[in-house]
Design a protein around this nucleic acid. Structure first.
Lengths: 327, 327
DNA sequence: GTGAAAGCGCTAACAC
DNA sequence: GTGTTAGCGCTTTCAC
């Protein structure tokens, strides 16, 4: 039992294939009565357009590619979900590629899927800007969660939220604060570090910079010792995963959160919501990030060019921040 | 600057397009010297085969579809990663579809991507078996994390691991144990409940069945009240997310884990590893599950038929289980 | 408003 | 070993 095509529909309805094609792609060009008939029998025959064929003919495949460094990093699933949802609204499919944290792979992978997608959404690429430009040459693409000069992107600015939390910490009496930095190559890490640094300037606060370390649970946990020794009463971790690691490591050292130490994460990833106590963090607008990326990609595909979009993170107070312990 | 095709390569090398085609798909059929030359200029021209075209010609698209109920549920990302990785080994791409927990969508979605993929991997479908059979008719597919009679699948059997943990609980003195059941429509929920029930039979243990409830953090949290009132000293939650919810809810009621209550989850999802204390659970073999699914799909595509594969979960003792509290 | 025909990039007989 | 040709399912001029 072969799949229905415009030909099988055409012959059962008694029209030409082109008419069937038009009934789908240019409905206004075919008389409504005929169109109804075509659409009906199409449904009966279980017809679904073959995108590959359509793509060959039009040069548009109807699929957008999404490249992420690691699907299992909790930052990406909500983003993928949002992108996938937005894509669906636009009647596009999503081809997902995981570079498995390999910077080299990013290049090859992009080349590889180039012909099968209309455009690409690249989340948190680690490739140096120059190479990124090269790889993306001639390919409609938008970068999410990193700002690269000359490339369309959508990013989240956590600066105000981070600083608001810092103020909060200050009010609670914290005067020695640790900044546990994320991966050196990560744009977000530099950006967030800067936000905290800027805030601390000229305040009666000592900022202890730790790291950079990888944004993994294990690395955060391993860094707990340093955090403990730093004498800081509060710590900004690069992201939630790292924060969770620090909390775990601290717990092993017998220090309690938030009783002995306050911890703040970033992103508001699922595990930040599900841990007990909940993690104080700044929430990334995943849905908007995803929607904006797809929107921007469509703009580019439509030949309009667009500028970088910046969306704000929002303060999310939960249970890992408290007043500085009386010692 | 158009993309390179076998034609552009053919004309610059001075051979026919078919030779170029063969150099890629049937390397042994073209003289090695010539092949080298072709491959080299292909690289120079930045050629990548157009899969859509290839797919049209061969009937094989080289992409496999994966349908998940919710990318953001922490169970799926590791599975997606494994599938994506296994697919890559086989030189296939991954089209990801999120049904967003809508049972109706499952049907439409399958129909929609049918023409663009060679086969489908469906994770944890909620559709009744009968409809599942219908939808999948004529489509190479494998079901992951659910066993459906007559459909190839790969599942995880947590029974021995769950029972081993139950024994452990028993040794620790627990005699009244709650079973917080998962979604009624979920195969895994029934399967896990059965494991615990079977274990409890004939033992000096009282099993209190709670639920079924949705496998969400919020639902677990809401169920904490019931758990507390049940008088159980230990609880088996359907999965880790639910377990995390119960712990959060219990905490609000002032009951501590594991001091006052022991909790065990299932799956060993990221958040189980990152919470403090770590969650005692049974780990799903994500990598093997993914690899096996892809393997099975290839078998089916190759015309061989295959039976259901069952992989064991493994006991993962962490910090949420302890001796029954002296009261 | 509808049909005929060419062509998208590739593969697969079939010749040579 | 390599070239020729037809055709995969669709869109899109161009006629009618």
């Amino acid at each position: 039992m072969r799949r229905a095509t415009i030909y099988s529909i055409a012959s059962t309805v008694g029209v030409s294939p082109s008419t069937v094609s038009r009934a789908f792609s240019r409905p206004e060009m075919v008389k409504s009565e005929l169109r109804e008939k075509i659409l009906t029998t199409a449904r009966e025959l279980g017809y679904a357009p073959n995108r590959a064929a359509r793509g060959l003919a039009t040069g548009r495949t109807g699929v957008i590619g999404m490249l992420v460094p690691d699907v299992a990093n909790p930052f990406f699933p909500p983003l993928i979900r949002a992108v996938q949802d937005a894509a669906r609204q636009k009647d596009a499919e999503l081809l997902l590629i995981d570079s498995e944290l390999s910077v080299n792979a990013e290049q090859d992978l992009v080349d590889r899927i180039r012909p099968q997608v209309d455009g690409l959404i690249i989340a948190s690429p680690r490739l140096p800007s120059k190479q990124l430009h090269e790889v993306l040459r001639g390919m409609p693409a938008v970068i999410v969660n990193r700002s690269v000069r000359g490339l369309p992107g959508v990013v989240c600015d956590n600066t105000p939220a981070l600083q608001e939390i810092a103020d909060h910490l200050h009010e609670l009496g914290h005067r020695r604060i640790a900044l546990l930095r994320g991966p050196r190559a990560a744009w977000a890490a530099r950006h967030r570090a800067k936000a905290v640094r800027t805030w601390a300037e000229g305040k009666d606060v000592e900022l202890v910079e730790l790291g950079p370390i990888e944004a993994q649970f294990a690395d955060g946990r391993a860094a707990a010792q340093q955090v403990a020794e730093s004498g800081a009463t509060a710590v900004f971790a690069f992201d939630d995963l790292m924060a969770a690691g620090v909390i775990a490591g601290l717990s092993e050292l017998g220090v309690r959160v938030p009783a002995d130490r306050s911890i703040v994460g970033c992103d508001d990833v699922l595990l930040a919501q599900t841990m007990t106590p909940g993690l104080t963090t700044v929430a990334a607008p995943f849905t908007e990030l995803g929607r904006a990326s797809v929107e921007m990609l469509s703009e580019i595909l439509a030949g309009r060019d667009s500028r970088t979009v910046t969306l704000p993170g929002t303060v999310t107070l939960r249970g890992t921040v408290g007043p500085v312990a009386a010692s």
